[in-house]
Structures are given as structure tokens and as C-alpha cells.
Amino acid sequence: MEIFYITIAITYILAFLGRQSGDVKEYNLKKINPFFFGLVTIIFILVCGLRSNIGDTYFYKHSYDLLVLTGDMIGYEIGFLKLMELLTKVSSDPQILIFTVGFICNLFILLSLKREATYFELSTYLFVTSGYYLVTMNGMRQSMVAGVFFYFGVKFIKEQKMFNYIALVFLLTLFHKSAVFLYPIYFISQEKAFSKRIVLLIGGTVFVTLMFSSLAGAIKEVSGEYGHYIDSFNEGGAHILRAAIDGVPVLLAYMNREKLEKDWKYSNIFINLSTLNFIFMILALQNWIFARVGLYLSISNFILLPYIIKNYFDDGTRKIVYAGCVIFYFLYYYYDQVIMMNVVYRSVILGIY
């Protein structure tokens, strides 16, 4: 875990310097110094892309080796298979796949945070301590798709370019089929935050959660390739602390909803994405597979929470809330990564065994 602690500390300092040396732009957002942004991005990409283990890394390497040896392309969506095939022409070492996916995923997530930054250093800090950074090393394909989606998808939603958005989601489904769930997000994200429709959606989610056992069969039918996970819903829901953490930005947004609507033109987008993420995390209390859908949306928390802390607390309270956020997220990170999962990072290239 030492490599993660070092990554947290160095990227936080560099991101802070990047914010301090940047200029204010509209809606109290910040332009981040490109030099420091580049350093932060390089560190995240190297740590992610040069790993030798964690999550599904071994299986992706194994699939790549099989492709090199046999030429067989099975098991993944066509877009990802074509990416693998292209990479085999460059190198037979499967590390190139791990690095490429890590590069794409982290670059676009950080570009999204940079574009929407208030406290850029806090956004990058939350990216790691929320556990999302580790997820990019586990659910590789989906995290890559999520990074690309959030950068381009939010842009198209802002500009109300529906056909561009639909084309983007279609392309992303060629890399991970679960991206099909993103089609309705275009319309839901533009709804007024905490409108009656959103409240009904939350209420429906609570109902589904309470009735999950009875509804499991129907959910399995519409879940496609993920349907088999529903059979084991008694064996693995998300931790309630995870859902509670994702609920904090939603609660604070609700408390400041009128100010957010007045001060931030695109507040509805990020509030609704965070709210939808929270909804999926509530469902994930019954089955962790729902958290996979929330993976596309939870990046909004790293934008929304820092914005609220910066703009809706007075100077003295802001410092306390900011410090409390840093401390609490680190404690959660330690609990989740060390106590619960005992994560060990290894990298042959970096000499970490």
C-alpha cells in the first residue's frame, strides 16, 4: 500500500500547486496550470499502467497472451478485441494492454476533473481515497469506458448535442456492453435537480431494494450477460458505508439546491449524475453488480463535493469541512483497502514485489 500513500501525497501537493498557479474562470471554477496537471496525470498513469497485479489484471494479461499465441479473439466486445489486436502489432508483452487502458482511463478522468475543477487537489484526492482509482485497475474495460464517457458525454450533454451523445454511447458499447445503460442518462441528467420525477425515481429505487428478492427474476431477464450475478444476490451487496459516502454530496446538494441552481449553470447535470449514482449504490446494497453501473456516474461526486465545500461554507467552516473531508476519506480508504481487502500492489517494472 505504500505506493498508494506516496501517490496520494505527491499528487495532492502537485494538484494543489496547479490550482494555486491557475486562474479563476466562470462559475468559480479554476484553470489548472498545465505543467502541474501533466505531472499529476503522469504519476497516476504510471502507477496504474505499470502494475503487475490487482483485480482482473492477470486475466487480461492471459487473454492478451492467448491472442498473441493463437490469434483467437473471444470473450470481449469487438471494440476491445480490435484494440488488443492492434496492440499485438506493437508488442507481444501484455503490459502494453494494461498501460494503454490505464493511460486512456486516467487521462480522461483527470481531464474531466481539470475542466470542472474548484479544488482540483481535493478532486484528485477523492478520486483515490474513494476507491475509484483502484477500480480502474480492476474493472479495466468499464473504467476506460467511464473515463471517456464522462469527458465527452458530459460535454455533449452541456451542449445539448443528443446525436453526438448517442453516437458516443454506441461506440462505447463496443468496448463494454453495460454502456447501454447510459442512453437515458442524457435526458435524466438535464432534469431539474430534486424534481418530482427524480424523487419518484429515488422512491422507486427504494421499493426495488426492499422487494429485491421478489423482483430478482425479472431483473435477471433484463440484465443480459450480467444476469447470472443476480442468482447470488444473497452473497454480496455493497457495504452500507460505501452507499453513505456516495449520499453525502447528494445531501449537501439538496441543502444548497437553490444556490446551486442560481450560481452554476450546469449544476443539474452533476447533481443528477450524483443522485443516480447514489440510487445505484442503494441497489448495490442488495447486489454489488449495480455498483458497476454507478461507476459511470460517481466521477461527478469528485466535482460536486469540492464545489459545494468551496462555495457554500464561510471561511472558518470551510477549512474545517475541507480538513474533515480529507481525514474521513483517508480513514475510509484505509478501512476499505487495507482492513477489508488487504490490497497489495506489485510491479515488476517498478521493482515492487
Rank of each mutant, 00 (worst) to 15 (best):
L273P: 02
F290H: 07
S189H: 04
L273I: 14
R318N: 09
A238S: 15
Y27T: 06
S92C: 01
G102K: 07
T317A: 15
V326D: 06
T209C: 12
A216Y: 05
R51C: 01
E221V: 13
Y5Q: 08
V135T: 13
W288K: 14
V344R: 03
K155H: 08
E121R: 00
V135Y: 03
L210Y: 12
G294H: 04
M255K: 15
F59G: 02
G204K: 10
T7F: 02
Y132C: 02
I8W: 00
F35N: 04
K155A: 05
F212S: 09
F328Y: 14
I349Q: 04
E85R: 05
L273E: 10
G139H: 01
Y312I: 10
K31V: 09
F4L: 13
A117F: 05
T57D: 04
M255D: 04
G224R: 07
I10Q: 04
L241N: 02
V338W: 00
E261V: 08
C48R: 10
A179E: 05
L50V: 01
Y58I: 12
T124W: 06
I6Q: 00
I271H: 09
L126I: 12
R115Q: 14
F290A: 05
P94G: 09
I299F: 10
I45G: 01
Y132K: 02
Q20K: 13
S213W: 08
Y165F: 12
F108K: 09
G71H: 08
L285A: 02
D56L: 06
M162D: 06
G294M: 01
T136A: 01
F194E: 09
A117Y: 04
I42D: 00
N272E: 03
V321I: 15
V348F: 13
L81D: 09
L174T: 12
K265V: 13
V40Y: 01
A291D: 08
P94Q: 11
M140Y: 03
L126C: 01
N33H: 07
C325Y: 12
Y186L: 06
F37L: 11
F175A: 07
P306E: 08
S232R: 10
D65W: 08
S91G: 11
F163V: 15
F290M: 05
F4M: 09
I202Y: 09
Q20L: 08
Q142C: 06
N256K: 15
V321C: 07
